[in-house]
Design a protein around this nucleic acid. Structure first.
Lengths: 221, 221
DNA sequence: CGCGTTTTGTCAGCTTGCCGTCAGCTTGCC
DNA sequence: GGCAAGCTGACGGCAAGCTGACAAAACGCG
């Protein structure tokens, strides 16, 4: 397992490296965006850990460039603490998961393992759960092979559910994910999106457990 | 599952409460250190979430006092973001785990579940007791491998019994955990839930000791 | 900018099914 | 037998969740 860690803070970079190394990964690090892009484009990694606040070339730009070039390795994005903005942009640029800083190293290892495992099971960044297939690179969703066109919000919702596919996700968590923690939203904004999303996906994809939350029917197949 | 959350920031306290409540816990909050100490000393909690930055009495002092008094419930400490110092002191004072602020609510739930499970002497997300299996991720229950669909209240009830499976749990305790002490329900609300739950689980799962309370037949396998 | 189009939050009304209450019954204990 | 603890079926209130309609943003495009 080979990992590229892109992080400009030397101390954090070192921590990441030793932690992941202890977890059995082979880790290379770089602090520079250009450098990162070059490495990611020419070498084969099982995972890239990418800090978004980089000098010389923005992490987001690097990620987009990789994806545009057809590179499909899983990317775990490190975002600034409260920055909801960064998370959204990260996911939309093709990140597979994000971790807000500061984080616990233990948590990083868990995520890294999960991503690598997921990628190993599939050829690309294609997630499947029952009749549902999500291509996190192209940001397209299809049900039973039929492509479905979703809005950004709808996509984020279904992608989040798919990422946590094997459990029931409470509405409060979804609200936080979709809108950030300052919930000035009227409660049933989420339900409105749900209705529209379900209409597009058809029945039997997203289920409700009253009093618990939402889940993907069929789970992770 | 009953949780005490000690947090002085009202907004965070509310977030914690709703999040944990959504996850199926019964949450009480207090912002005051003295108050927290008293509650933790006199009530029975399955977990305490403790912010260290408190007015009136330091969170650390509260924790030490509990431990000195022989109180052994698991305590999850919330520390300020980078404060390494606090973590060490927290652990030394008897905390079971710590979570640096700011944290993701999702993460809090995961930790809370882990601690509660560990305290019960079990390791995985799957609890088993006799013919009963409880998946705390999916919030599903199955008997002899056959999945059973439960409501939120029924789930909380059986989960609590499973956690304290090897002893007889008095109805007053169940009432308290399900509804909180302030709520004066008609006594037989619990029995009504019991009936419905038993009908779904089948006989031979939940037993009654007249005058004492309820218990899981077969205990912890 | 100005105008059409799409997306998304809000509101109101509706449906669903949870669960608390009640009334009557059964069981165990003295 | 008598009493209290506990069980159960029925019922209805009510809150969670769903949906269609509308309006306000957001976006795209000249």
């Amino acid at each position: 397992m080979r990992i590229l860690a892109v992080e400009d803070d030397a101390r954090i970079a070192r921590d990441i490296k030793t932690t992941l190394a202890d977890a059995g990964f082979r880790v290379e690090t770089t602090a520079d965006g250009e450098d990162a892009w070059f490495l990611g484009d020419t070498e084969e990694y099982d995972l890239v850990v990418l800090d978004l606040g980089l000098p010389s070339m923005d992490g987001l730009a690097v990620l987009k460039k990789w994806r545009a070039a057809g590179r499909e390795m899983p990317v775990l994005v490190l975002t600034a603490r409260g920055s909801w903005q960064e998370r959204v942009e990260g996911i939309e640029a093709g990140a597979d998961d994000y971790l807000p800083k500061p984080f616990r190293m233990e948590e990083l290892v868990a995520r890294a393992r999960a991503l690598v495992r997921r990628a190993a099971g599939r050829g690309s960044a294609l997630q499947q759960a029952g009749p549902l297939a999500i291509d996190t690179n192209r940001m397209t969703v299809s049900v039973n092979g039929v492509p479905v066109s979703l809005t950004a919000l709808e996509y984020r919702l279904i992608a989040y559910l798919a990422l946590h596919g094997d459990r029931v996700v409470p509405p409060s968590e979804l609200l936080e994910h979709l809108y950030g923690d300052d919930d000035a939203r009227e409660a049933n904004a989420l339900e409105a999106v749900m209705t529209r999303l379900r209409r597009k996906l058809g029945t039997g994809v997203i289920g409700t457990r009253r009093g618990f939350g939402y889940f993907l029917e069929g789970g992770t197949a």
